[in-house]
Amino acid sequence: MIPIAELPGWAAFLVALLVLAGAALTLTGATGLLRLRTFYERVHAPTLGTTLGATLILAGSMLCFTVLQSRPVVHEVLILLFVSLTTPVTLMLLVRAALSRDIQEGRVSPPQPDKDRSS
C-alpha cells in the first residue's frame, strides 16, 4: 500500500477532477431514474453512468496508479471494455422484454406496425 500523499500535486488535481466529474455524471444518470416519467424514458438514464461516468472514473484510477507506481497501470481498460460491451446487451434485452410485456397487456401499441417509411 502506497500512501496517497506521495501523489504529486498536478496528478492529485487531475485525478480528483476526473473522479468528481465521473461521479457527478453517474449521479445525474441515477436521478434520471427518479425524474423521468415512463419506463422507456428511464431506460436511457443509467447509460450516462456506464459510458462517460465510468470512463472518467477509470481514467482517474489509471492516472493515479500509473503515477503512484511509476509504471503504466492499464488493467482498468478491461473493466471499460467489459462494461461498454455488456451494458448495451442488458439494456436491449430489458427493453425488448418490457415492450413484449406491454404489448401483451395492451398498454402500448407496437410501434407503427404496418406503416412503412422506406422513402
Binding site: P88, V89, R96, D116
Partner: peptide
C-alpha cells in the same frame, strides 16, 4: 450498430425485423 446505438445515451435499439429489414429504436 446495436451496440453503438444503445451505448449512446438517448437512443436505444429495440427491434430489428430481419424480413422487412426495418430497425426500431427508441429515442429520448
Amino acid at each position: 450498430l446495436a451496440c453503438i446505438i444503445t451505448a449512446t445515451p438517448g437512443t436505444i435499439w429495440v427491434d430489428f425485423d430481419s424480413e422487412s429489414r426495418v430497425l426500431t429504436i427508441h429515442v429520448l
